[in-house]
Amino acid sequence: MLSRIPAFARCLSLAALCAAGPVSALEFPLPPPGEDIIGQVQTVTARYEDTFADLATRYDLGYLEMIAANPGVDAWLPGAGTQIVLPTRFILPPGPREGIVINLAEYRLYYYPKGRNVVYTFPLGIGREGWGSPVSTTKVTAKTPNPTWTPPASVKAEHAADGDILPNVVPAGPDNPLGPFKFGLGLPGYLIHGSNKKFGIGMRTSHGCFRMYNNNVLEMADMVPVGTTVRIMSEPYKFGVSGGKVYLEAHTPLDESGKPSVVDKHTAVINALLKREDLANSLRINWDEVRDVVAAEDGMPVEIAVPTTPAPVVGGAPMTLQ
């Protein structure tokens, strides 16, 4: 079985990273045509007081990303000296590399600024169970600093049932759940916005909107113009090429309501591969490795195949996914 962490993963001292100051957006040069992977996995040595929530905030990662990449590690008390994996290597989502692309299954947003050969990526909080975020294509229709919040009737009723009476309008400020900035979208009722609760970024916590760390949404505010395309997908299985090798990145599938989905993973993986017409008919796939990657659902790209020429040869055992 191939290693989950690439050989070139950087082992970094957490103290050294912290000395560099707060981490801003994850920014990467776009890979050349035919390549799909950005970043590299890192590891840090935890201090006694560190938690996954703290580390996720510090390194622009989501809470569930940290959980998936570090199975068996206590999220609230990893322990001094524990090696913590930072899953900062990504396969770019399928489709055009332009505008904003949101992949619900990985709780992550990608932004491709026009005219620049870079990509930014940010963790997101998405719609919780029963309030799933939509799969759609839309645009940024408005940008609003210091927004007020007018709770919709459904949200007011939900809070009232728990004895929490919401005001008709919540003014801008530290108690505003929209944070310091919001992007209006062409989907009525849905926004990209900051948050007054940093815990929950990278989880299913919202009523369908897309929550960001406040420093991230303010960075986006300076970069993203009104009219920017926003493509929202839910792709738990992403295939990508790097250095002539083919990789698979697997996340827990979500159903339309935002719940973990019980799906035929065999069919889902094959369908994701078939969307990559440049790969589907020219690979020698290690199906045993594919099965392991899908079972792990750790969100990190793992080598699973090499291209073949001229004729495809499928090796390994038939794929049977549990």
Rank of each mutant, 00 (worst) to 15 (best):
E249V: 01
G194D: 14
H251R: 02
V44I: 14
A272T: 02
V135Q: 13
I67A: 09
M66F: 13
A280Q: 15
Y213G: 06
G34T: 12
P177T: 08
V140L: 08
L248G: 01
A15S: 11
T252Y: 01
A9L: 06
L55H: 07
D292N: 01
V85T: 14
T148C: 15
L218C: 02
A272R: 01
F199L: 02
W149N: 06
G208Q: 06
M1D: 06
P188K: 12
P171S: 02
T137N: 11
P225E: 08
A9G: 11
V263S: 11
N214S: 07
V119A: 01
N146M: 11
F199W: 09
A15E: 14
A7K: 06
K156R: 09
N168D: 15
P94G: 06
S282G: 11
L12G: 00
R231L: 03
P134V: 00
A305D: 03
P151H: 08
A7P: 00
D36R: 00
M1N: 05
V314E: 03
V313R: 14
N103G: 03
A142Y: 06
G130V: 10
P29I: 15
G115S: 06
P171C: 10
N117G: 15
G79L: 05
V85P: 07
A56W: 14
T205G: 11
G202P: 10
T51S: 07
T45P: 05
D288Q: 05
V155M: 00
M212V: 07
N117A: 15
D264R: 10
E129R: 10
D278E: 11
I84K: 08
V290I: 01
M212D: 12
I192H: 05
Q42T: 09
A20S: 15
G315K: 08
I5W: 06
G173D: 06
P33C: 15
V155A: 00
P32W: 14
S136D: 15
V101P: 03
L30G: 12
